[in-house]
Structure formats: C-alpha cells, structure tokens
Computed example of a mutant assay.
Amino acid sequence: MAQLEQAATADPILRLALPEHLSNPYPAYAELRETDPVLWHEPLGSWVLTRHADCLAVLTDSARFASDWRRAGEEIPAPLLSVQTLDPPEHTAIRHLLLDGFRAQDRDALHGRLDRHVKELLAELAERDSFDLVGELAEPLALRFVTDFLGVPAPDLDWFVPMSRTVVDGMDAGLWPEKHEPAVAARAELAAYAGGWLADPPGHGLIGYVAAHASTSGVDPAVLRNSLRAVLHAGYESASRLLGNAAAALLTTPGAPAAFRAAGPATAVDELVRFDAPVQADARVCVTDTALGGVTIKAGDPVTLLLGAANHDPRRFAHPTDLRLDRAPNPHLGFGRGAHACLGASMAIRLAGSVLGTLATDHPGARAVAEPDHRRNLTLRGLDRFEVTLRPATGEEVRT
C-alpha cells in the first residue's frame, strides 16, 4: 500500500485506487474533469475523457472510435473476439442474434421466478442478526437470474466467482499489467464452459434460441461461444455489482428507502445507476484523426472514457452529487450508448428493482451494520463485502 500511495501522488488515475477514492471516487473525478477534461495519461498511453458530452460523442461514433482494436492494427487474442469487441458490420450479426434471443424469452415467467426467489431469500436472511449482502445475496441472486435467463443450471459459485473476478481484474491491466494474462486465460476457460452449452443445448432460454438459429446466423462459432461467455460474465458482474452499489447507497442515505418507494423501481434504479454505476470506464481506439474537447486525437490513439465522471458532470446533471431517486430524464452513460450499449441493461435494472423494492417495502428496517468494503477495481466498480441487517434498530441502537 505504501508503494501505491507513493506512485499515486503524481498520478491522477492511479490515485483512484487509494482506499479513500475507492470508497468515493467522485471528488477526484470532479477535479480531473474541471482541470484537465481531455488528459493524455502517459502510463496508460491513452487519452482520458471525463465530460459527459465528450464520452457520449465517442460512444456513439463507432466509425471514428473502434471497440475492435484490429482496426488500429492491434492483434487481439481469439478469446477476446465477441459481441463486446467487434464493430459493425461484423458486430451486427452476433448482436442481432442475441437481441432476437432476448426478445423471444418469456420475461413474465422469468420475472415471476425472480420475485419469488428474492422474497424467499430475504425472508431467510431476515432471521439472521446480519449477513454479507454481496456474497450471500447479490452474487448468488445475479448468477441464478442470468443463468435462468440463459436456460442453463448455475455453475458452482466457488468456481465461478473467482474466475469472474480474474476477468474483471484484467480490465485494469493498463495500470497493473500482471493482471492481463490470467484474465485472458479465465476468459478462455469461461468460453470453453459456454461452448459446452452449444454442444448439448437446452430446449429453452437464450441458449436454446441461439443454438436453434446459429447455423443460419452467419456468426463464427468461436465468436458465438465467446459472446455467450460475455453474456454470462457481463450479465452477472453488471447485475451483482449494481445491486451491491445500489444497496449501499440506499441503506446509507437518510430517507432513501421512502424516496425509492415514492419514485418507483424503474426511475429509482436508473438514478442509482447514475449515482454509482458498476461500469466506471470504457475504452476505444481512434481510427480517424478527430477533434474532441479542443484536442486533436490521432488515429491509433487509445481513448479511456471515465463514465463515472461523466455521470456526475454538472453540465448535464443538476446537483450531480445528490441522490435524487425521482430524477427524470436521466441520460446517464452507466450502460453505455451506441452500437455497444449493454444488451442486458433491462435485466440488471429488473433484478435491482426487485431486490431493492422488496427491501424498501417488506424490510423497512434494513440498515448497514458496517461500512461497505470496495474491491480494488477501477473499470468495474463493486463491493467486496457489505454487512447489513434486516432487523429494525432497537431503542438502544438508535440512541447510540
């Protein structure tokens, strides 16, 4: 930690990994946004953007800013070629196949199973003095919900969670290069696991749909396997981290549960995403010289978008540091925009709405027992542990 602190004193990006900024990066984002909104960061070898307008411009311009780094002459490992990393027109076939599969699912039945399970699990946890909301609620719920949607059994948490976290750690390999190779290996293992679904597909769920239509889709089988891995992994991580971040905001902000009930789940969760989104950063590579924010970004230059900073930009959001659960409209970038907007955004919102709505209505006494503990991830923001109780405070605890 001393080595990190020493390095971070001269590095506005690396300092985000310090404990005080892991718990609340938004003041540091604000300073960076106001002093150097289009920053060349030498250690990353990348431009860093923090304003909403600049980030939105890049996200919605796949002609000039690529997700597929092969367009800038980079070699991409085969396990990384998926719906997340390809650009149109190659991206179009796999995205359409997945979107058609999403639309074909019985959402009402899926949501009904989710709501019943949420109520049952929270009722069990209410019998405990306290519990870890991350490991005992957010992670198992997210994995069960995503795999139910896919139509396959949930993998063992003890195997899947460390694998998933290794992939997430690799997203910060620009700062910590030693995390890159383990992440590539983990992606490959998850892709092999997902490939097994296609060898013996279920008769229902997204996997069943994709397996039935793959031969006529024009999608490369390896890209399809990698994309199913991405749906599993991104769906799980986005949903579980959103649920943890949102619950922390809800249970540590005075009056928030009542405001949640008044605003309604959809509007309230949208604001919770803006307020503390799981996806804090995204990356593109410039393929055509482009003027942005008063700077010319050259072809071949990487661009890092600090979406967490953009979501707190006062030029786009009134009182951005306030949690306003009735905020509308809410044009946050928490699920991206453009060709690579998150496929499963509605699922993550539905899961969070079910859990937080049940907490706010069935367990109004829910409260934090300890401060939330954040993982040292800068690209995907999430909690390592968050001890809570569903039991109302006693008179003695209230006085304390």
Rank of each mutant, 00 (worst) to 15 (best):
L44T: 01
G45I: 06
S46H: 02
S46A: 03
V48L: 03
V48F: 01
R51V: 02
H52L: 00
A53W: 00
D54V: 04
D54A: 06
D54L: 03
L56I: 00
L59M: 06
T60G: 00
D61L: 00
D61I: 01
D61K: 00
S62T: 00
A63V: 00
F65R: 00
S67F: 00
S67V: 01
W69G: 04
W69F: 13
W69S: 11
R70L: 01
R70M: 01
A72H: 02
E75C: 01
E75Y: 05
I76M: 11
I76W: 02
P77C: 06
A78D: 13
A78Y: 03
L80Q: 08
L81N: 06
S82V: 05
S82R: 02
V83Y: 01
T85G: 08
T85I: 03
L86R: 02
E90I: 04
H91N: 09
T92R: 12
T92P: 10
A93Q: 11
I94F: 08
H96Y: 10
L99E: 10
D100R: 15
D100T: 14
F102R: 09
R103H: 15
R103C: 07
R103E: 11
A104P: 09
A104E: 10
D106A: 10
D108L: 06
A109P: 07
A109C: 07
A109S: 10
A109G: 11
H111W: 14
R116H: 13
R116T: 14
R116S: 12
V118H: 07
K119F: 05
K119H: 15
E120K: 13
L121E: 13
A123I: 11
E124G: 13
L125P: 10
L125M: 12
A126E: 15
E127F: 12
D129R: 07
D132V: 05
L133H: 05
L133A: 09
V134T: 06
G135F: 07
L137Y: 12
L137H: 11
L137G: 12
E139W: 15
L141S: 10
L141K: 13
A142Q: 13
F145P: 14
F149K: 07
L150K: 05
L150R: 04
G151P: 12
G151I: 06
V152S: 06
A154I: 15
D156S: 10
D156T: 09
D156R: 08
L157M: 11
D158E: 14
W159S: 08
W159P: 02
V161L: 14
P162R: 03
R165I: 08
R165W: 15
R165M: 15
V167P: 05
V167G: 05
V168A: 10
D169W: 08
D169V: 06
D169A: 15
G170P: 03
G170D: 07
D172R: 06
W176H: 14
H180R: 12
E181K: 10
A183G: 09
V184M: 05
A186V: 04
A186L: 10
A186C: 09
R187V: 10
L190W: 11
